[in-house]
Design a protein around this nucleic acid. Structure first.
Lengths: 107, 107
DNA sequence: ACTATGGTTCGAGTATATTCGAACTAAGGA
DNA sequence: TCCTTAGTTCGAATATACTCGAACCATAGT
């Protein structure tokens, strides 16, 4: 509880909040990883960054409604809210994901 | 010149910058208006806000590459960079526009 | 009960954005 | 030439976000 309660319900998703959450390289990187796997723990990312910073970015993603987090033992498993997002904002997550993976492939 | 030179070339468009520019209600409102008309002057919006603030938001849209601005007499005409954006980030602007007009219709 | 793991929260410092008035500039019209 | 229009730029105030160490809190294992 606590962190997991800040997730907005589907009807309360705000487009601007979602776009803001996605407008950051680190968070986009997290979202890309989540797009490849159903559920991942925060610790599973090879993003070199103090855990309090990572936690901050996960919270932004969580409170904006991009991801959902559930407890599994001692870890927190994160999942993209694909269905909710594509119902409320069809194509947004999909196209951002496509564009961002296209960009990271280019480098 | 000056303001109009800050526009990034198509190849230099940054996804995060575009998403950031779109993650604000005022700017989204501007983008929605621009989507309905080919070109509009800044003064043409019924956004009640001091002109220096409006100018700021137009600059964010301009420097991120969402809009392009050209001079026409004493006014500046703004246009959405639809083609550039959909070539670089297919579907992003389109879906954001669709979602945002859907939201503003709801209120 | 102790310890380790995987995270969150707090707090402070720094950086970045937003707001807005005021001064400026360029172009058009009287 | 003077005035107006349409917008930019500057500067300062305020607000918001990011970064990160330190302290904290569950849960799992020993």
């Amino acid at each position: 509880m606590g962190a997991l309660q800040n997730e907005p319900k589907k009807a309360d998703l705000q487009l601007t909040a979602v776009l803001y959450a996605l407008s950051d390289e680190t968070r986009l990187q997290i979202v890309q990883s989540l797009a490849k796997t159903p559920e991942i723990a925060c610790s599973y990312f090879d993003i070199h960054m103090p855990k309090s910073s990572l936690s901050h970015h996960f919270r932004v993603l969580r409170t904006s409604g991009v991801i959902t987090t559930r407890k599994k033992g001692t870890a927190l498993l994160n999942r993209l809210r694909r269905e909710d997002l594509s119902e409320r904002f069809p194509g947004v997550l999909e196209s951002v994901l496509a564009a961002s993976t296209a960009m990271s492939r280019r480098r």
